[in-house]
Simulated scan of single mutants.
Amino acid sequence: MKVLMINGSPHKKGCTYTALSEVASSLEKEGIEYEILHIGAGQTRGCIACGKCRETGLCAFNDDLVNTAIEKAKACDALVLGTPVHYASVAGAFSAFLDRMFYASGGSFALKPGCSVVSCRRGGSSAAFDQLNKYFTISQMPVVSSTYWNSVHGLTPEQVKQDLEGMQVMRNLGANLAWLLKSIEAGKDLVKRPVTEKQARTNFIR
């Protein structure tokens, strides 16, 4: 089993990475593989609703790591999204990244566990946390929880490590994710996957 962790911070080994690494420490203890994919600090385009992804299953834009993330997520068993908090929201580039990633994937992440990790200096973490979780809940992905909302506080990695409760939440999150993955694996031959009905799209214009 393998988990894809996506670092949505422009800083490769900053506060968000520190939080994700603590989640990873629990996964390692349980024998779960993981990979941390950093989206980088380059330009990330927003979705332009061109519809090309409906033909290919990939985004028409190929100048960043969105399509790489889609392929890696399809091959993995669970997904962890990590973001810094910018103005009480997901970092702008990461928000654009996830819009394209989840829309282009065509629902192929369904029933894979997902969990969110947010890093902030002081405030806005719960709003960003809620925003990330909506990507999972619209995609039929079970959301993994911990012993508090999945956030850490601090301006630097060193300060994040001093957030003892936050780091504990990260470790518990990793342990809970590992447990759910093992439970799914143990029951896959005993319990059939649910059959999803064809979507009935309703536009509220009469």
Score class of each variant (00 low, 15 high):
3 V>F: 02
4 L>C: 04
5 M>I: 11
5 M>V: 04
6 I>A: 05
8 G>A: 02
11 H>A: 14
13 K>P: 02
13 K>Q: 14
14 G>N: 07
14 G>W: 07
15 C>P: 07
16 T>G: 02
19 A>E: 03
21 S>I: 06
22 E>Y: 00
26 S>G: 00
26 S>I: 08
30 E>Y: 06
31 G>R: 04
38 H>V: 12
41 A>G: 08
44 T>I: 13
45 R>M: 09
46 G>M: 01
47 C>Y: 07
48 I>F: 03
50 C>Q: 05
52 K>F: 14
58 L>T: 00
58 L>S: 02
59 C>R: 07
59 C>Y: 03
60 A>T: 04
61 F>L: 09
67 N>W: 04
69 A>C: 05
70 I>C: 00
70 I>A: 00
71 E>V: 13
71 E>I: 11
73 A>S: 01
73 A>P: 04
74 K>T: 08
74 K>E: 13
76 C>N: 11
80 V>W: 01
83 T>K: 10
83 T>E: 00
83 T>Q: 01
84 P>S: 07
87 Y>V: 13
88 A>N: 14
91 A>I: 13
92 G>I: 09
93 A>D: 07
93 A>I: 02
96 A>Y: 13
97 F>T: 11
98 L>E: 10
98 L>C: 11
101 M>G: 06
104 A>Q: 04
109 F>Q: 04
112 K>E: 00
112 K>M: 03
113 P>N: 00
114 G>Q: 02
119 S>R: 03
120 C>M: 11
122 R>M: 06
122 R>S: 11
122 R>P: 05
122 R>D: 02
123 G>V: 15
127 A>G: 01
127 A>F: 06
128 A>M: 03
131 Q>L: 10
131 Q>D: 11
131 Q>V: 12
133 N>L: 12
135 Y>Q: 09
138 I>H: 15
145 S>C: 15
145 S>I: 14
149 W>D: 00
151 S>W: 14
151 S>L: 08
151 S>A: 15
152 V>E: 02
152 V>A: 03
154 G>V: 02
154 G>Q: 05
158 E>D: 14
160 V>H: 00
160 V>S: 06
161 K>S: 12
163 D>V: 00
163 D>P: 07
164 L>R: 06
165 E>Y: 12
167 M>V: 03
168 Q>T: 05
171 R>M: 00
172 N>F: 10
177 L>N: 08
177 L>Y: 14
178 A>R: 00
178 A>L: 07
182 K>C: 12
182 K>I: 07
183 S>W: 15
184 I>M: 13
187 G>L: 02
188 K>S: 07
189 D>N: 10
191 V>N: 03
192 K>A: 15
192 K>N: 13
193 R>G: 10
199 Q>G: 07
199 Q>V: 12
200 A>K: 15
201 R>S: 02
202 T>F: 15
